[in-house]
Amino acid sequence: MTQSPVVESIDSVDTEETPVGGPATAAGPTRADSPAVIRTQGLTKRFAGGQLAVDGLDLTVPRGSVFGFLGPNGSGKTTTIRMLMGLIAPTSGVATVLGASMPQSVGSVLPRVGALIEGPALYGFLSGRDNLVRYDCADPTADPRTRARRVSEALDRVGLTAAAGKKARAYSLGMKQRLGLAAALLQPRELLVLDEPTNGLDPQGMREIRALIRELAGEGTTVFLSSHLLDEIEQVCTHAAVMSKGRLLVQGTVRELAARAQGRLVVRTPDAARAAEVLAARGVSDIRVAESRVDGEPATAGDDPLPGLCAALVEAGVRVSGFGVERGTLEDAFVALTGEGFDVAG
């Protein structure tokens, strides 16, 4: 039994080479210095009914990232997470988690992974503490001698210490969510997979959970976070991927994704109709006129900068009370990508 002090070098390229390492084609904008914690290649799941839930997914989650996994309901997010966790077997393709293929390596991989999948599931007749003891017992690598301490620490971390003795069936949804999160935090993890972790929480609880996610990420845990709350993804994630109808539409850093959504020029003026004419003449497209407000897409890469537009408006006698560009949000990018919404760009 040699206690080798090997510390896995994160920056080393060697760790990129996994036992099952297929062609390391960098699908998506992976940072070269961070080997993937999750990598899928052509991951596909067709259910018995013939329904194609996930279709040829190539996903790369860099180590150390907080990875937002977005998509409308039924887009295959949960099926993907279940395949990553070895709960369901892929129809074809490869899923690699922490360098080992799933579901073959669940025994060696999952003790290093904490997961919250499709909401918490608890034993209602057990106390919160005993629920955690139960899940801790399920992990054969968990040392029974330190179990009580681990459970107390996990309860403390999610702020449930006071309610630890209460039966789980008496818990509110938010408390159940916290307890589920505590189960994922029983051990120090290399990867946390959190499916809608702030579901059912009040705004204060949401803030706490987000702070916790940031704290965990700061400790070096990679967080894979699925959420339908785009501002949540924008607040806590460094990377994101968008799924729709079983396919991966895009993945990259949140900044890149948000940049895809073009900002809109917004002019506030009492002379809306006149302003619209001027803007149209200057190459602004997709103009929408509302009461004392006009917005549109400024010509891309045009030589006519915004100050020029503003000057033109003033020149034409338009009384401008506000002029500016509304920044593109992840939500805009999301809507544009999934086509969910009226304003489809690209």
Binding site: I10, G64, A217, G220
Partner: peptide
């Protein structure tokens, strides 16, 4: 006590952009 003989602890120097050190 919890670490494995062949423990490969995650380095604390993981590059976590946006995160506080």
């Amino acid at each position: 006590t919890v670490s494995a003989p062949k423990a490969a602890p995650v380095s604390t120097t993981v590059a976590a952009p946006v995160m506080e050190p």
